[in-house]
C-alpha cells in the first residue's frame, strides 16, 4: 500500500472539490473493496477523502411513490428498510445474498455499485491485465475462466461484474444520481452505469474524476413477485456463478436480469419479453452472441435452469 494522505470530508461539495483538485485522490466510504485493492497496489490513491460521515445515508420516499437511497446507506440498512423489504423484495434478497453480514455493514450503496471485478488475473499483479495496466493484455483468456463472463465480453477482457445488488437494481430500473465537480447534478440510468469492456476495459463506469454518487433512486414499486436466486459452489460467502433477478407479474410478463455472467448486470429487454414462452426462450435470446470458454460454457444452461427454478417458485 502506497502512502497516502487522509481527510474526512466536511460536505459533499468539499469532498468533490478535494478529489477533483488533487491528482490521485479518491473517495473512500466503506472501503471494503478499495482498501483490499490498495493492499495489492492495484489501486494506489495518493489521497483519500473519507465521505462516510456526509449526510448521504438516508433512505426516503419520493413523491412519485419511488424510493431514494442515499449513496452511503449501507447494504444492511437498505436490506432492512421496511419499504425495501415490502415493495422491492428483489433488492433486499439480492443484497443479503451478497458478501457477509460484516461486509454488508460496511459496504455502501454507491461503493457496492462501483466495486471492481473479481477476476483472479486482475489480482495477479505479476501477470498482464488490461484493467490494471491498459494495453498489457488479458491473462484470463486461455487461463482459468470458470468464474468469468460469458457474454458482453471483449477480446480484451472477460471479467464479470461480481455484484448482486446491482442485478436487482437493474430489474428495478434504478437511477444513479451524482454531483459533479462543477456542482451540476446528473442522473444515470442503471443500465448505462456499468460499461462493457470493449477495447477500454479499464473504464468501468461513466463517472468523471471527482464525480460523486449521491443516491440511487427507484421508481414506483413494480409489484409482482420478486425473486433473486444466486448459484454458487458453497452455500454462502461466495460470488455468484450465476444469479438471476426476476420481477414476475401475474400475467406471466416480467423483468429478468442475470448476474455473474457478464461485465455488467445482464438484462436484455427483448429477451425478457419472451418470459411467457419460458426460460429457454429467454436465455437463448439473452445470451445471443455469447462467447463462453470451455471453462464457463456451463453458465448458460445454468442460467436457464436457475431462471426455470425462479419461475417455478414464482408460479407456486
Amino acid at each position: 500500500m502506497r502512502p497516502f494522505t487522509y481527510e474526512r470530508a466536511a460536505s459533499a461539495e468539499a469532498a468533490v472539490a478535494a478529489v477533483a483538485s488533487r491528482p490521485g485522490a479518491r473517495f473512500i466510504a466503506g472501503g471494503t473493496n478499495l482498501l483490499d485493492l490498495m493492499k495489492f497496489q492495484i489501486e494506489t490513491p495518493a489521497h483519500l477523502v473519507d465521505i462516510r460521515h456526509l449526510p448521504l445515508r438516508g433512505i426516503e420516499d419520493l413523491p412519485d411513490g419511488g424510493l431514494r437511497i442515499g449513496a452511503l446507506a449501507t447494504n444492511t440498512e437498505v436490506a432492512a428498510h421496511p419499504r425495501v423489504k415490502r415493495e422491492y423484495g428483489v433488492l433486499a434478497r439480492a443484497i443479503v445474498a451478497g458478501a457477509t453480514g460484516q461486509l454488508r455493514n460496511k459496504a455502501t450503496t454507491a461503493g457496492n455499485l462501483l466495486q471492481r471485478n473479481r477476476c483472479p488475473y486482475f489480482y495477479e499483479t505479476s501477470l498482464p491485465c488490461n484493467k490494471r495496466q491498459p494495453g498489457s493484455g488479458c491473462s484470463a483468456l486461455g487461463g482459468v475462466t470458470r468464474s468469468l463472463a460469458v457474454v458482453g465480453t471483449s477480446p480484451h477482457c472477460i471479467a464479470q461484474n461480481p455484484g448482486d445488488m446491482a442485478v436487482a437494481l437493474r430489474v428495478l430500473d434504478a437511477t444513479v444520481e451524482t454531483v459533479r465537480p462543477d456542482g451540476s447534478q446528473r442522473r444515470i440510468a442503471i443500465g448505462d452505469f456499468h460499461l462493457l469492456p470493449g477495447d477500454r476495459p479499464e473504464i468501468e463506469h461513466p463517472l468523471a474524476p471527482g464525480e460523486l454518487v449521491t443516491a440511487v433512486t427507484l421508481p414506483r414499486p413494480p409489484g409482482g413477485t420478486h425473486r433473486y436466486h444466486k448459484v454458487r459452489d458453497r452455500a454462502s460467502y461466495a460470488f455468484a456463478i450465476v444469479s438471476v433477478a426476476v420481477v414476475l407479474q401475474e400475467d406471466g410478463t416480467g423483468r429478468v436480469a442475470f448476474g455473474g455472467v457478464a461485465p455488467r448486470p445482464w438484462r436484455v429487454e427483448d429477451a425478457e419479453a419472451l418470459l411467457p414462452s419460458g426460460p429457454a426462450a429467454v436465455v437463448a435470446a439473452a445470451f445471443q452472441g455469447a462467447t463462453p470458454t470451455a471453462g464457463n460454457a456451463f453458465k448458460i444452461p445454468l442460467a436457464e435452469r436457475a431462471l426455470a427454478l425462479v419461475l417455478s417458485e414464482g408460479r407456486a
Binding site: 486461455g142 487461463g143 461466495a238
Partner: peptide, 25 residues
C-alpha cells in the same frame, strides 16, 4: 486448487478463491 498450466501456479491462492465449507454448508 486450480492450476494455471501456462504459468505453473495455483490461481485460487487465497481464502476467497479456495472455498472451504462455511457454516451454511
Amino acid at each position: 486448487l486450480v492450476v494455471d498450466t501456462r504459468h505453473g501456479f495455483f490461481i485460487n491462492h487465497d481464502l476467497g478463491g479456495y472455498e472451504v465449507p462455511v457454516h451454511a454448508d
